[in-house]
Simulated scan of single mutants.
Amino acid sequence: MTEDTHSTAPVLRQEPAIRRIGRSDLVDALSAGLRDFQAYPAFGLFFGGVYALGGVAILACALLWDLLYLVYPLAAGFVLIGPFVAVGLYEVSRLREKGEVPSWPGVFKAMWAQGGKEISWMAFVTVFIFIIWMYQVRLLIALFFGLHGMPAGGFPAVLFTTPEGLAFLAVGHMVGAVLAIVTFSLTVVSFPLLLDREVDFITAMIASVRAVVSNPVTMLGWALCVVLLLFVAALPAFLGLVVALPILGHTTWHLYRKLVA
């Protein structure tokens, strides 16, 4: 009696095909994202407002606990979870692309349906990277300022007028840049891909990294635009994120459509 080997063979999923894109595709995606925001601004303002309120809450906690020196690292790290918050915006763009009219129940139902699926693991990945970011900040503070940490008073002067402070800023920004590039590479395609197709989160992350590697100049240019826009938007107490997040979220969906065949 011969054994049926086909019954136990693993099912291999084909990895998504990645396209090459250029600057014109990036401009087209941005234009389409702006049109989505203009067509349904209430969704964008809502999710952008939730994201901005999260930033304000972090700022308030840091001030309340007299941890003013952590405001900038917290604000920079908070940007890392933006792709997860923008899932609702991806759904709005997806529905509009299909010719359907987005509704609040429909968008929230689609988001709720992702609760036990692969997109939850991607959310865990972004939160995990945020935790790593904050731990490395504390580690650098201990390395450059000792176990007692940064002085509570006059820390701006310590940062900008002492060798330890300048070294802390230089190393901190280099480590932050590396973490930001890693996060961008893992999430720029993975979140919209998981919303759009039945793939596992590992496959989605690999596809996202492949998209960045296949289009290094275009994607790193987009990453720089994202960083600059979020930095400017966060300056007025995070309030600019109300508009910045929906623009970036809708644009990311259309960029995903151009990148993944």
Rank of each mutant, 00 (worst) to 15 (best):
V79M: 11
E15C: 00
P83T: 00
L53K: 00
A32L: 12
F78W: 14
T203D: 15
F84Y: 12
V27Q: 07
L59W: 08
M134Q: 12
L195F: 08
L241A: 03
T162D: 06
L239Y: 04
L255K: 02
C61H: 07
V182M: 08
P151A: 06
G77Y: 04
L194Q: 06
S214E: 12
L259G: 03
R96E: 07
A244R: 00
R23Q: 10
G88K: 03
P236N: 10
V27G: 03
F130N: 05
R13Q: 15
L241Q: 07
P246W: 03
V217W: 11
P192Q: 09
T183E: 01
V175L: 15
E164M: 09
Q14C: 02
G55M: 06
L59P: 01
E15L: 12
L89V: 07
S185M: 10
V137Q: 05
L63P: 01
R138G: 12
D66W: 09
A204Y: 10
D25Q: 06
I131F: 14
F46E: 05
F201H: 15
L139W: 12
A86K: 04
F124L: 14
P192K: 05
I58A: 06
I119W: 05
V199Y: 13
R210H: 11
G99P: 08
V182N: 00
A113L: 13
V171S: 01
F168E: 00
A233L: 05
V56A: 13
P216R: 03
L63W: 01
G54E: 01
D36L: 01
P163A: 11
M150W: 04
A142M: 10
G165C: 11
Q14G: 08
G149T: 06
G106S: 08
E164N: 14
F191P: 02
P151I: 09
H250L: 04
R197T: 10
G172E: 08
L230Y: 08
K117L: 13
G33P: 05
V175D: 02
Q14E: 14
T2F: 13
K117P: 01
S185T: 11
R20L: 10
G22R: 06
A237T: 01
P102T: 02
S93M: 05
G44I: 01
W104L: 15
M205N: 09
R20T: 15
L12Y: 01
T187G: 02
Y51H: 12
V92R: 02
I141V: 15
F124Y: 08
G22F: 07
T252M: 05
M134G: 10
P10Y: 09
D4T: 03
K98N: 09
T5R: 06
L89W: 02
P156E: 14
L248D: 03
I21R: 03
R19Y: 00
I81S: 07
M111P: 03
L169D: 07
T5N: 09
A39M: 05
A223P: 02
F160D: 06
A39K: 11
F155A: 07
E97A: 10
L166V: 15
P236W: 10
F47W: 12
G54Q: 04
V27C: 01
T126D: 09
A234L: 09
G149N: 07
A57T: 02
D200L: 09
P156V: 14
F201W: 15
